[in-house]
Design a binder for these strands. Structure first.
Length: 912
DNA sequence: GCAAGGTC
């Protein structure tokens, strides 16, 4: 890029208008700088001449406003009912410029055509790099010959900017790839789960939100859900917490010099008798002897320079402003030029920053102007170069005032937030407060007590940072050996009580777990309120709503950590790997999406957990009448128990004692039990079922919608019957088999499979007495992934053999050796082809055996101390579980008080 | 009607 010659046109693009303006001003030194409008009213175009390494350039400097493009599914997948949500894991996606960014794109189109170089001035983080590639895509489309260069800068400071433009580098594809991967994963997970849970729950329950029910969306997102998780988890901790009364002894002493409060050095005791005995000893011998007097100088340091999260936390703590409101006000202040860029992770100033100039700006302020003057006066010794918190996003400095604002100009919130920014900045460059601390220890009847007092010797930064105080109480002076009698000696009680999560706590949790960015954390919090997942009280404390709690509970009962931050943390780790070239984008995408799809499919199989959790808090709606899992189809011929279990089988509710089952064709995609009764099948009543089949899995000539015409008293109804009269159903079972256990899963029952199945069709299965499969393949016995033995409980020893209840091969009784189930006996099949597994004690509880799920703990994780009911769940192939009684709530008890007679929603103690 | 990330 070196060398003189003809002037070339260089298109420069920054991430936001303010950066374009600042860079243009610095490079042009405000000499010959022209400004004109582009197609977008916000994004001006600056023009000036500049030489890059001796090459004369005509510079055109413009900007985008953040991302120029959006990722979305192709049109045919965008409607909610256009496809199965599971398809969204492989549905084609594309990046397009949305309508509201088209004017920026037009500007780039026009300007790029007449330029030879494109210099990218996007923020120097991963998102910035990704935006750089969006700009490249747009510009290259109209000008293939553009030379692409990237300017790297970490602050809008003269030297930094000149250095950046003289040392242009290549854009970093890895950084951009990491963001591409994140976008795609977020989109696919978010859309699939949101559609799934909204369509599953919205119409089945009377969710009394403030919104019009029609627009209710039960969204899922990899940031919003862990944020909700933090709130629910704390709420559960509070519910599980048993308030404990404790006792403590307090001792005060008043003298001419003042009063000292001595704290018991044991802190507090939970044992009342013990506390009383000690207290009585003190009362009988109340003379205190001073055993130790210690004096120390203590420093209290000012806070680090202000990052976004810290601004939000402090505004919440000091002014009870929501993080969302804080960011809105900060944005206004930034736009008006009063404070620096408000979205920054950086909490240390660059050594090149002219801090003195910033302080000088504040000298004229009527309230803190005199403090600023003192700071600048070397004679006061008040100045101190600020220390840093060790965070630097390499894109923006800490938030600081950029120009002088006299209060009360733009409403109260603006003024107080500006005041916080200024006072915080002035505090950062000030000396710490200095205090003299005195600690006195006394002995009363062998018990030790201590009191401390503090005298502030120099307030320093505390003079300007009025939001912080340093509790300075003065205590009388004491000497070792001195004796005195207490003024008061009391035995006091207290109760342990964990607090709800405040907004500042929540931000800390998110920050720690890497949920969201400084620019989006407040959005995630707001989203929880908008979606009616959580509420915030006047003290900025968060509680989950019934809806929020039910959703988290549902996933938790499945044993998934979809509501915990781990998923996001893992993703963040992978993104980091992509951004440094250790992993490829394709590899991370394939891996993550495969896992998430498996998780999604599993969650859908276990959707009954979500339904159960919702039914704890919400009434079922009328629309639910024909949709619920566990509907009765007919009386069981063997034992008079009955149940419509899941989509694919009609099984007896008395399983495993009774194994009577009717299996439906594998090509069934929907099965809804109607309230209509078959007129011909006996013994009745047999409720009719509306079937829908997958087109490509049934032969031509069969309708995907299968209803048998039945004339009832008042209407002409069409439904399928499992009572034996339904010829179409019988034929489809003959042709397609009962496919729930096909290794290929959905769609595997093809013509070629029928050849294999025709061999087994003639023999009746020993379990369900049906033809169409072998006993070893009987779908009435639960199965999921094969070869999963290695994931079962750790084996200690083989015990006596019994017949396997799944595939017929011998099964052994074993003893678990895991932390949660040590010593518990279970049956597991010896066959490598079968992964049947059943706890011995669950047989009596009525819980079914199940397959050991791949890659999962043998016993889903449980929250401690919530008095939850027995284990009724598990995972199987295309089936759902109910408890022995058919009551999904059996065995549960109230989370609040533990009483089995009611649930938390009806608990008289709830909310106290 | 869905995510999270930029930004006005």
């Amino acid at each position: 890029m070196a060398g003189g010659g003809r002037t070339i046109n260089v298109l420069n693009v920054a991430e936001k208008p303010s950066v374009a303006k600042a860079v243009a001003a610095i490079l042009s030194r405000n000499q010959g700088l022209r400004v004109r409008d582009g197609r977008s009213r916000y994004n001006k175009i600056f023009e000036f001449d500049y030489a890059i390494r001796g090459q004369p350039c005509h510079m055109l400097m413009t900007s985008v406003t953040g991302h120029l493009m959006e990722l979305d599914f192709e049109d045919r997948y965008r409607k909610w009912h256009s496809c199965d949500p599971a398809d969204l894991y492989q549905a084609p996606v594309r990046k397009i410029v949305p309508e509201d960014k088209m004017d920026i794109k037009r500007t780039l189109d026009e300007e790029a055509r007449r330029c030879q170089w494109l210099v990218l001035w996007l923020d120097c983080d991963r998102e910035g790099e990704n935006i750089a590639f969006e700009v490249i895509e747009v510009c290259r489309a109209v000008n293939h010959h553009l030379v692409l260069r990237r300017a790297r800068f970490s602050a809008l400071i003269d030297r930094e900017i000149h250095q950046a433009v003289q040392n242009l580098v290549d854009p970093n594809q890895w950084f951009a790839d990491a963001v591409d991967a994140r976008q795609e994963i977020d989109l696919r997970i978010g859309a699939s789960f949101t559609r799934f849970q909204t369509m599953l729950l919205k119409d089945r329950f009377c969710i009394d939100s403030a919104t019009e029910d029609r627009n209710l969306v039960l969204s899922y997102g990899p940031c919003q859900f862990p944020t909700l998780g933090f709130i629910v988890e704390r709420y559960w901790e509070i519910q599980a917490h048993e308030p404990e009364e404790f006792w403590t002894i307090n001792f005060t002493h008043r003298s001419d010099e003042g009063i000292a409060t001595f704290n018991w050095m044991r802190g507090h005791l939970f044992d009342y008798t013990c506390a009383v005995i000690i207290y009585e000893m003190c009362v009988q011998e109340p003379t205190a002897t001073v055993t130790k007097v210690r004096q120390q100088e203590k420093l209290k340091y000012p806070p680090y320079p202000l990052s976004t999260i810290e601004l939000e936390k402090r505004a919440s703590r000091y002014f009870r402003m929501s993080s969302e409101q804080t960011m809105k006000v900060a944005e206004d202040l930034y736009q008006a030029g009063f404070i620096s860029y408000p979205r920054t992770e950086t909490d240390c100033f660059s050594v090149r920053t002219d801090l003195h100039a910033m302080v000088q700006e504040q000298q004229g302020h009527p309230v803190w102007g005199s403090y600023a003057q003192r700071l600048l006066d070397p004679g006061t010794g008040l100045w101190r170069n600020p220390s840093g918190g060790g965070h630097d996003d390499k894109a923006h400095p800490p938030i600081h005032p950029t120009s002088f604002l006299l209060g009360n100009q733009d409403g109260v919130k603006t003024t107080i937030l500006y005041e916080l920014v200024v006072r915080h900045f002035l505090a950062c460059v000030s000396q710490p407060a200095v205090g003299a601390e005195t600690t006195v220890e006394i002995d009363v009847a062998g018990e030790l007590f201590s009191a401390s007092g503090r005298v502030i010797l120099a307030r320093n930064y505390l003079d300007v940072y009025r939001f912080e105080s340093w509790g300075g109480s003065v205590i009388p002076s004491y000497a070792v050996g001195q004796q005195f009698i207490p003024t008061t000696l009391t035995l006091d009680s207290g109760v342990t009580r964990p607090p709800l999560l405040s907004e500042a706590d929540l931000l800390s949790c998110m920050d720690k777990a890497g949920i969201g960015t400084d620019a989006t954390m407040h959005d995630h919090i707001k989203k929880l309120l908008d979606r009616f997942y959580a509420t915030k009280d006047a003290n900025t404390r968060f509680s989950p709503t019934n809806l929020g709690e039910a959703l988290v509970m549902g996933y938790d009962d499945m044993g998934y950590e979809l509501w915990k931050p781990n998923l996001r943390s893992t993703m963040e780790y992978d993104m980091k790997e992509v951004s440094i070239g250790n992993k490829s984008k394709a590899e991370v995408l394939a891996n993550c999406l495969q896992q998430m799809k498996a998780c999604f499919l599993d969650a859908r199989v276990n959707k009954v957990k979500l339904l159960e959790a919702m039914s704890i808090f919400f009434e079922r709606s009328n629309a639910d009448e024909h949709h619920a899992a566990g509907e009765i189809v007919r009386q069981c011929g063997n034992c008079l128990e009955s149940n419509m279990d899941g989509k694919f089988m009609v099984g007896c509710m008395a399983f495993p004692q009774c194994r009577n089952a009717v299996w439906l064709p594998g090509s069934v995609s929907e099965a809804i039990v109607t309230s209509n009764i078959c007129n011909s099948c006996n013994p009745g009543p047999v409720y009719l079922i509306q079937f829908k089949f997958r087109r490509h899995e049934i032969p031509p000539g069969f309708d995907v919608n299968h209803w048998v015409s039945v004339v009832t008293e008042s209407l002409h109804m069409q439904s399928g019957c499992i009572g034996g009269c339904d010829e179409t159903l019988r034929q489809l079972i003959e042709i397609c088999g009962t496919g729930s256990r096909n290794p290929g899963g959905r769609g595997a029952t093809t013509t070629s499979n029928n050849v294999r199945q025709s061999d087994t069709r003639q023999r009746a299965c020993i379990y369900c007495q049906q033809t169409g499969h072998s006993s070893g393949d009987c779908p009435s016995q639960f199965s999921g992934s094969r070869n999963a033995h290695s994931h079962g409980p750790n084996l200690q020893s083989g015990e006596s053999s019994i017949p396997c209840t799944s595939c017929g091969t011998p099964c052994v009784l074993r003893i678990a050796n895991t932390a949660n189930n040590r010593g518990r006996k279970f049956y597991s099949c010896q066959s490598q082809e079968c992964n049947f597994f059943l706890w011995e004690d669950d047989i009596n509880n009525g819980t079914r055996g199940r397959s050991i799920p791949r890659g999962s703990a043998s016993n889903p994780g449980r929250r401690g101390g919530r008095g939850r009911g027995g284990q009724t769940g598990g995972r199987g192939a295309d089936t759902t579980f109910v408890s022995a009684t058919g009551d999904p709530l059996s065995g549960r008890r109230c989370y609040v008080c533990g009483d089995p007679s009611h649930f938390a929603n009806a608990c008289p103690n709830r909310g106290t």
